[in-house]
Design a protein around this nucleic acid. Structure first.
Lengths: 254, 254
DNA sequence: CAGGTCATAATGTCCAGACAAATGCGACGG
DNA sequence: CCGTCGCATTTGTCTGGACATTATGACCTG
């Protein structure tokens, strides 16, 4: 186990390496630099030591250090400029894009999410859903309909279609945890999601369920999620009360 | 200049390398593989030769090949699995996330965008905008207000704030080209954008401008864009006619 | 025939070094 | 005083190799 200071000037940033750990070295380095940025030990604009010096200090090779830095550059935490050096990004850029569910979002923001399962059953898919999920027309898929509350108020009406046999989902599970969390726990590795976000006026029945008036603006989101092999694992069509919720997205261009 | 077939089985994919070009070799490889996927020469599920063989065929080292493949994995075109190999992703995953403007989106989808500039002038910023753009309170910034049409119909009302001196923007330019295109042309390198998407009912004046009735659902987007150094280069607050437009977002988890 | 075991193949990680290219700054000269 | 050239610094790209880890399928055994 080694432990080395990263910044000569300030000498307040230390990195521990555990070569016996299964966690890759580059990842250990990246995590600890990211943590230093979150903590504020590395302020925006601060320059890291150059790659060769860093590699030397940590007893690693330059490619390994580069891999660690590249990882953080991709996440938008660092900026590299040839001939200049590597700096912590100016301005407080938010967390990178992540595949999260509404449930995760709510819990992270400190609200208390609750869920009421309205439907949970295999249903015959129509042509459109079959095409999206890559099933034969007339096949069955798991249909799921939920009403999501936050702070005791109805917030969203969620419709989902999932391929059968993907995970064992019980109504009890779904009322205490988020769908994405359950899928991840079942070993589903979600990787790409395609979302279409729009808005429309609330219909009669939606309005009643959500506690809005008919014609109230609703935020709509249609999302298809694929796993790391490109197979569709979930298709959702959701409506949110625009007065209570908005979506946040961060884009990073490489 | 070398030219090598990539896939032994089909032998229909060739890659040209130009070592005298300033374009990095890994990028040349990546581009041509991506092109082959777009063309359909590499169908979803097709397996690439393994990295060592590829490197051998192309006369490159394995890290260079890996860099090319990694680039495409990050873009969501390929999937790597240890012990198995590298495959073209199943299913038609859309293009990766990009920083685009409404104008670009419309032109790409074949519609004919038109723009009417309502306001284009330096204005004193309020506290909120100053904080977002990183300016002193009371400083000035360029205020821009536009009405965007597609196929002759009003589509969106766009409000923007930009730091002064970023680019010379004329009303004529803005009526014939998109804001992002103009900024890129002026050397601004946009890299990260943070968007908040919501919905609300149209007010009286918005409704009149957009040709909707008061209370019609509107899609709202508030976006701040940062350059590669993390400096804010643009802040926009836009409303779209929900009946005519929706936003598409692709998320890729690494 | 079923199940576990082992070999094989492929990617993941890491190392040591070399040269290229861009940036910023200082020294020099007009 | 100002501009230009050149140099030092730093990241970008590329090489060639080594070992670790994991998934797959063939083989052997019970």
């Amino acid at each position: 186990m080694t432990c080395v200071n990263l910044i000569s000037m300030t000498a307040n940033l230390a990195i521990d390496l555990d070569r016996s750990s299964p966690v890759p070295l580059y990842f250990q380095v990246a995590e600890q630099i990211a943590e230093a940025i979150r903590r504020g030990d590395l302020v925006p604009g601060a320059r890291l030591d150059n790659e060769i010096l860093l590699a030397d200090k940590l007893g690693l090779s330059r490619p390994t250090i580069r891999q660690a830095i590249q990882y953080l550059v991709d996440k938008g935490l660092l900026v590299r400029k040839r001939g200049v050096g590597t700096q912590v990004v100016h301005g407080q850029v938010k967390r990178s894009v992540e595949l999260t569910s509404l449930y995760d979002d709510l819990r992270r923001s400190g609200q208390e999410p609750a869920t009421q399962v309205i439907a949970l059953e295999p249903r015959t898919v129509d042509e459109e859903i079959a095409a999206i999920l890559g099933l034969e027309p007339g096949a069955e898929a798991l249909y799921l309909e939920r009403l999501r509350f936050a702070a005791g108020e109805p917030l969203a009406l969620l419709h989902n279609w999932l391929p059968l046999g993907l995970a064992r989902l019980g109504a009890t599970d779904l009322e205490t945890r988020g769908l994405y969390e359950l899928l991840r726990g079942a070993g589903v590795r979600m990787r790409v999601a395609n979302q279409r976000i729009g808005a429309r006026a609330a219909g009669q029945s939606e309005a009643r369920l959500l506690g809005e008036r008919r014609g109230a603006p609703l935020l709509t989101m249609i999302r298809t999620t694929y796993d790391d092999q490109g197979r569709a694992v979930e298709h959702g069509s959701h409506v949110y009360r625009a007065s209570h919720y908005s979506l946040e997205v961060t884009l990073i261009e490489r």
